[in-house]
Design a binder for these strands. Structure first.
Lengths: 246, 246
DNA sequence: CGGTCCGTTGAGAGTGATCAACGTTAGTGG
DNA sequence: CCACTAACGTTGATCACTCTCAACGGACCG
């Protein structure tokens, strides 16, 4: 089975040469068990990770043990990049489900910068996209009610899973505990429960053990505080490399 | 006066060639009046901005008009990068004080990727650093009390201003309204007022019209939920371009 | 001198937190 | 297949941090 490269091609379709480089990464895959730690905060940064299958999370710890989940990673995502700027890893990466990952050592990343302008710009824009996602998450947590937050999160997840080809009939795998969702959205698990329950009772979503169905996408979107961002796609690459400015 | 290039050199000291490129940007400076909009959300993305002097902000708007401030930009910062990944600008850039900025068109950015590996990696790591800052902000808003948030923000500002050489005797310019701080930290201006007032009454900070003094840095840091991240500096560049992995 | 923006303060309300208990599910080992 | 256990989901009662609404004072600016 072909690894999910859709995230690499989202800003620039890949050449054969690029595909070769990226393909090399997939060579040595590792399988991490559910709930195991891929890299802990504070550990040395020897590279980044490519998530081939399964779900994972990035989170940061506060002094007193409180945890903020920063991102839910889905198949195709790159993980651990922010820590490249730090002296030691600044985020903890964990497998939410059993997960297949590839380790990409620093040196391999360096080679990309030297060898492929296309991939370099792709990685650069991909990082900017993650930044947009973080800005979005911040605006959810900073300004919206629990119901708006949960709705927005579910729809975002839905869109991303769809892009990865993991949605079927508005139905998808949903392995997140309510505790986890709380740590992601800045709520307690108790309140996440009440909110999900309310969405369920209203007929917007249907929860069945480990699965989630968006019963009423439009109704759910109406609860959402903002429209999802529209990404540049190929034009992002063109803007930077074809000098459209005059 | 030399423009503040410290943010460019933080991950890799610049060669003459690099300095030339970066210097070119400073050629056409523009002065934006206080409270004026540099680029509004939804407008086309024709380039990014370099903040030479003054303060600016990035913010995102919600449907109903609520606003989340995402970042306070200080002299030396690059602004508008996340929108490179979007079809239209996803953040509004505004001048908080009178501000001197340089416009960097997309084509100029493209040239960097083609001409300077050093600057490319520098920009890349700089972006990762911004991501770390966002993760930090998210963890503040998601998990901490008003007092912790405000303390952490003030100290972060202090550190960044210090890096830009804008602190004197633990004293610095502070042109932010309480409304603005509220929109940044997910609080109302009323509550920001009470929190600042309390910090002032406790003797941790001293506010004098437009200025802020950190009276008790250690006391303030004790209120903070997490330690500030340690950045990689030059080693970040080395990791990626000297292939230290074996 | 008047207007507007900003900071300040008070009273009251509410969303979401906390605490606590119980039910349910899944995983484990006999 | 069942007993046992731990993790997770559910629910209720109570609490409190922060919001909302409202008013007033001061500073700055035209």
């Amino acid at each position: 089975m072909q690894p999910p490269f859709h995230r690499f091609a989202e800003f620039a379709s890949l050449t054969c040469h690029d595909l070769e480089i990226v393909g090399d990464w997939s060579a040595n895959q590792r399988i991490m068990a559910r709930n195991s730690t891929i890299r802990r905060e504070g550990e040395p940064v020897t590279g980044v990770f490519f998530l081939v299958a399964g779900w994972a999370s990035s989170s940061v710890m506060l002094r007193d043990g409180r945890r903020q989940v920063v991102k839910v990673h889905l198949p195709g995502d790159l993980m651990g990049f922010p820590s490249l700027a730090l002296a030691a890893a600044g985020e903890t990466l964990e497998a939410i489900t059993d997960a297949t990952i590839c380790f990409i050592p620093n040196a391999s990343l360096g080679k990309i910068f030297e060898q492929s302008l296309r991939l370099t710009v792709g990685l650069f824009l991909s990082t900017q996209k993650e930044r947009v996602a973080l800005m979005q998450g911040l605006s959810w947590v900073g300004t919206t009610s629990a119901q708006e937050r949960v709705s927005a999160f579910i729809l975002d997840l839905y869109d991303r899973l769809d892009a990865a080809g993991l949605v079927k009939d508005q139905n998808f795998n949903f392995p997140l505990t309510q505790q986890f969702i709380g740590e992601l959205l800045g709520l307690t698990s108790v309140h996440v429960n009440r909110t999900l329950r309310r969405l369920d009772a209203t007929g917007l979503i249907v929860r069945t053990r480990g699965q989630l169905r968006i019963a009423d996408p439009d109704g759910l979107r109406a609860l959402t505080p903002q429209q999802p961002p529209k990404f540049a796609g190929e034009t992002g690459w063109l803007r930077l490399c074809r000098g459209t400015a005059d």
